[in-house]
């Protein structure tokens, strides 16, 4: 895996992939996509990085421990946000009823809880898919 063309192309493309992935994650409540699709695109960027620059490069960028933390943390974040609704006397995963500001429809910071939920899911999915790829590709 020591291909100059691949490396150069990857260096140009990866930032675009990551920005697009983040865009899809953050605009989940406004346009098609959301935490899951965006997370997969983000992970795609990581995987391309690993393919072009080798596994050790990815390992130093996203260590196993960090990936595990993100995987658990993403869903814990989701559950925690859901619990806010429960604690404020509404229901689990309540949105406006739990006091989350809904904002102006169509703006980035709107939709209350949905925006935050997507963020957690996006991080979790990106970490999980990268881990999946790493486990499958692992050298013996």
């Amino acid at each position: 895996m020591d291909d100059l063309v691949l490396k150069v192309v990857a260096r140009v493309i990866i930032p675009f992939i990551q920005v697009y992935g983040l865009y899809v994650v953050l605009h989940g409540h406004l346009s098609p996509g959301g935490g899951f699709a965006g997370g997969v695109i983000l992970a795609g960027g990581f995987i391309l990085y690993a393919l072009a620059y080798g596994r050790p490069a990815l390992d130093s960028l996203l260590p196993d421990r960090l990936a595990a933390l993100l995987e658990s943390g993403g869903v814990l974040w989701y559950t925690g946000l859901g619990l806010v609704g429960l604690l404020t006397g509404s229901a689990f995963l309540a949105n406006a009823r739990a006091g989350f500001p809904l904002g102006v429809p169509g703006r980035l910071f709107s939709g209350g809880i949905v925006f935050l939920l997507n963020l957690g899911i996006g991080l979790k999915v990106a970490a999980t898919i990268s881990t999946l790829f790493r486990n499958l590709q692992e050298e013996e």
Binding site: V24, P32, G33, G34, F36, A37, V40, I41, A43, G44, I47, I129, L132, F133
Partner: peptide, 15 residues
């Protein structure tokens, strides 16, 4: 179903 289209393209064709 644009949501699914996006997910399918990223998952099915990609990952």
């Amino acid at each position: 179903a644009p949501d699914i289209a996006l997910a399918e393209a990223a998952i099915g064709a990609g990952i």
